[in-house]
């Protein structure tokens, strides 16, 4: 037989939430050290990377499914939303190009443009999916 206590349940959830944040950023820190300090490749660290990607995507889509606004806790007016949507994919696309450039792994402008384009489109697709799921949640929960 179990006996639930709302105060303890709430504290358990809070502790689990903090533990998740610690694990997520801990794994990220491990990946950064392995890539940039120890010089390991993505193929050598795929297990850690897969855990980190799956956990991050799970968190991202669960937020969307629970109706959390994308920019929460910062409220954005329509103009700010456009700036956010235009800026974040560009920065996300530039980041891998910059990292590859610093590691001397870029073979030319075509390679850079390819990496930028794929990352940019992937980010836009993730944003579009988030908005679509959010809109679906709102129709299902609030109407």
């Amino acid at each position: 037989m179990t006996q639930r206590d709302e105060r303890i349940d709430s504290d358990v959830r809070r502790v689990e939430g903090k533990a998740f944040v610690l694990l997520k950023w801990g794994v990220f820190a491990v990946l950064v050290v392995r890539w940039f300090v120890l010089g390991q490749t993505l193929a050598e660290t795929w297990d850690f990377f897969a855990v980190w990607v799956v956990a991050s995507l799970f968190e991202y889509f669960m937020y969307a499914l629970r109706g959390v606004p994308m920019s929460y806790p910062v409220p954005l007016n329509p103009r700010d939303q456009l700036v956010f949507l235009a800026t974040v994919p560009v920065v996300t696309g530039l980041l891998p190009v910059l990292i590859l450039h610093l590691r001397g792994a870029l073979t030319g402008w075509g390679h850079a443009l390819g990496i930028f384009g794929r990352t940019y489109i992937a980010m836009l697709a993730l944003f579009a999916l988030y908005r679509a799921i959010n809109a679906w949640w709102e129709r299902r929960s609030l109407e």
């Binding site: 109706g67 606004p69 929460y72 409220p75 709102e138 929960s141 609030l142």
Partner: peptide
């Protein structure tokens, strides 16, 4: 709070 939260409270969800 957000508009969505008011909506959920009104729906008793």
């Amino acid at each position: 709070v957000t508009r969505q939260t008011i909506g959920l409270i009104e729906k008793e969800r």
